[in-house]
């Protein structure tokens, strides 16, 4: 029986269907290292191979589990593994990515263990009484801190929100045996992993985002957004108007009912800046807007706004950026 540090923070690391750690791992371990000793849990077939990656990102200890129904049942097998890990580690807090899979695993675990659940945290800290979660709510209009009445909080962390990174640790792996809870679960019939067609970063968690709106005018002309994104190494997003007009798929949508992003740089092209769109991007560090309507609300929050025709300004911008690179 190995003992775990008294200030252990249990961190569930997401993995992709093809068996790698997701990008959220660095931020989760960075956040955990700021409030205690990060103990990572990897629930994947062949998780041992990923343990060194987790250690490089700051996991002092790595638990590897492969529950029998993993990949066959939805949510429950990983929630069972998380419950077993929490039982073993007795952490001060449990951190999970606020991804679709992550938050549902956290949900089942918190409901089962009757732990206090705090979702979509953008940071964590510690006071005399325990670990505190920091949230940015109503589209970034308010900052809220939350704590739990007792025990270890279960906190889901917004992807891309944590800048802190932990120091690499020596690899220390332990295999975790998981007893199945026998909770009823949905069956996964098949998985269709989205094919990554470009080297472009994912929208969630991207450091830079270029988004297009109805001002792009057509699906063909939306390619201008892609071109600028590629020059900047940015992810591509869109307003709901551009999605509704069929320029891009719904997965591109930034805003109230789409993806919330907090990048270093957000460039809005031909986006008027309806309140629902702003709710998903106004926590960006720097906002740039190009729109031909001088009264567009997006300019009220833009650090750098250009009133002009994006079809002349953007090509000039791309040319200028490429000239500097050359």
């Amino acid at each position: 029986m190995t003992d775990y540090p008294a200030d252990s923070i249990l961190v569930l690391l997401d993995t992709t269907p093809s068996g790698a750690l997701t990008k959220s791992a660095a931020g989760l371990l960075g956040a955990a290292a700021g409030v205690g000793t990060p103990v990572a849990l990897i629930v994947a077939a062949g998780g041992e191979q990923l343990a060194s990656d987790a250690a490089a990102l700051g996991a002092a200890r790595v638990l590897v589990a492969e529950p029998t129904e993993l990949g066959a049942q939805l949510t429950v097998p990983v929630a069972d593994a998380l419950a077993a890990a929490a039982e073993l580690v007795r952490p001060d807090a449990v951190l999970v990515s606020n991804s679709i899979e992550g938050r549902e695993i956290a949900a089942r675990f918190a409901a089962r263990s009757r732990s206090g659940l705090a979702v979509d945290a953008v940071g964590v800290s510690r006071d005399a009484e325990g670990v505190i979660a920091h949230h940015s709510v109503y589209g970034g209009a308010y900052n809220v801190d939350s704590a739990v009445t007792w025990g270890a909080p279960v906190i889901t962390v917004r992807e891309g929100a944590i800048d802190a990174r932990a120091e690499a640790q020596p690899v220390s792996i332990e295999r975790l045996e998981v007893a199945a809870s026998a909770r009823r679960a949905a069956v996964i019939d098949s998985v269709d992993e989205a094919v990554v067609t470009s080297s472009r970063p994912e929208l969630r968690g991207a450091a830079k985002v270029v988004s297009g709106g109805r001002g792009l005018g057509s699906e063909e002309q939306f390619a201008l957004v892609d071109q600028l994104a590629d020059v900047l190494g940015a992810a591509v997003g869109a307003s709901r108007a551009a999605v509704d007009a069929g320029y891009v798929p719904q997965s591109y949508q930034v805003g109230q009912t789409g993806v919330s992003v907090s990048p270093q740089l957000y460039i809005a092209l031909g986006i008027s800046g309806a309140i629902q769109h702003r709710a998903g991007m106004q926590t960006a560090k720097t906002i740039v807007a190009i729109n031909k309507d001088a009264d567009a609300p997006i300019f009220e929050i833009a650090d750098f706004g250009i009133v002009g025709d994006l079809f002349t300004v953007v090509p000039q911008l791309i040319a200028a950026l490429e000239a500097r690179k050359a």
């Binding site: 801190d145 001088a294 009133v307």
Partner: peptide, 24 residues
């Protein structure tokens, strides 16, 4: 028997202000 999550502080973020705006 259940631990609950409680709000311990709340602050309104100062509204974002506009920076430079130029006409092309």
């Amino acid at each position: 028997e259940a631990s609950r999550s409680i709000m311990i502080s709340l602050a309104e973020k100062p509204p974002r202000t506009a920076g430079t705006k130029i006409v092309d």
